[in-house]
Simulated assay, not measured.
Amino acid sequence: MRILITGGGCEEPIDGVRSICNFSSGKTAAFLCDHLVAKNFSVTAVFSQRAVKPQKSVILYSYRTFQDLAGTLQQVLGQHSFDMIIHAAAVSDFSVDTVTINGIGYPSGSVGKIESGSDVVIRLKGNPKIIDSLASWSRNKACRIVGFKLTNAAPGKVREELAYALLKRTDIDFVVSNDLSEITGDRHPVCIYRKKSGKDLECRYQGQTKQELADILTMIANEIQGDSV
């Protein structure tokens, strides 16, 4: 059984030495890769350049920007057949459109280094949601998809509503709801949602640590493997 896992976070260049990025380190995704390899699954990892990488043997692709990640996933998913996708990367909602320096506009990343004292205006543009395209990009149309929905100090009801909205909008099968305010070290509380009949939402699994999250995803992978036999 083949599993693709994304990890780390996008960087969007401002100039040749600066970028807009997020806090994602890729540690959880790397932990999941190593755990699933140890359980004898074939793992392909698509990780950002700065992310912590898996220690065990995986097929590794790297990306930096949103466009890098989208292009790599479209190519890899179209060329190879995967049974499961775990999309844990922190994808940029915005990229830099233009950088205006002292009244003159430049494309993002085209200026070597903006000099200190400059008057700078950065214009952002919204990015499409990569998770919305994973099913259509996938060569294997029976591939099961696990997405992550990160919040920060959000009430439980809000987390549930966001998980439901993601499941409703996309063709994914599970949403891992996690909150940044609760993640410390090995502690990583999650509630994994899936659709039920009609408009119902079910918290199918719960865990409190990275290890428990890895065990749950392994259980789901085993169920998928059993269904395909």
Rank of each mutant, 00 (worst) to 15 (best):
G105H: 11
P107V: 09
E115A: 15
I104C: 13
R123L: 11
V96A: 11
P107K: 13
F94Y: 15
D119H: 07
G109I: 02
L124Q: 03
D97I: 12
G109F: 00
D119N: 15
S108R: 13
S118I: 11
D93V: 03
I101T: 03
I104N: 10
G117P: 11
N102D: 13
I101H: 09
I104D: 08
V121D: 15
S116T: 14
G117H: 05
G105N: 15
R123F: 07
P107I: 13
S116R: 13
E115S: 13
T98H: 08
V111L: 11
T100P: 09
D97H: 09
V99L: 08
S108K: 13
E115R: 14
S116A: 15
Y106H: 15
S118C: 12
T98R: 06
D119R: 12
V99P: 00
V121T: 15
F94S: 09
S92F: 08
R123D: 13
S92P: 06
K125A: 08
V121Q: 14
G117V: 05
G112E: 14
G117L: 04
D119W: 01
T98V: 10
V120Y: 01
S92R: 13
V111P: 08
S92V: 00
S118Q: 04
S116H: 11
V111F: 10
V99N: 00
F94M: 09
V121F: 14
K113F: 06
S108V: 07
G109L: 03
S95N: 07
S95V: 07
D97W: 03
G117E: 06
T100A: 09
K125N: 06
K125H: 03
N102G: 03
S92G: 05
P107N: 14
V111K: 04
V99W: 00
Y106T: 06
I114W: 01
I104Y: 12
Y106D: 06
I114P: 07
S110R: 11
D93S: 04
I104R: 15
I104P: 06
L124D: 03
V111R: 01
T100I: 08
K113S: 02
Y106C: 04
P107D: 12
D119G: 01
T98M: 07
K125L: 13
V91D: 04
S95Q: 05
V121P: 05
L124H: 03
G109V: 06
T98F: 02
N102T: 01
D119F: 10
S95D: 12
S116D: 11
P107G: 05
N102R: 06
T100Q: 14
G112S: 15
V99F: 00
S95Y: 00
S92Y: 08
S95I: 02
D119Y: 13
G112W: 05
T100D: 05
D119L: 06
V120Q: 00
S108A: 15
I114D: 02
T98S: 10
I101F: 05
K113E: 11
I114S: 04
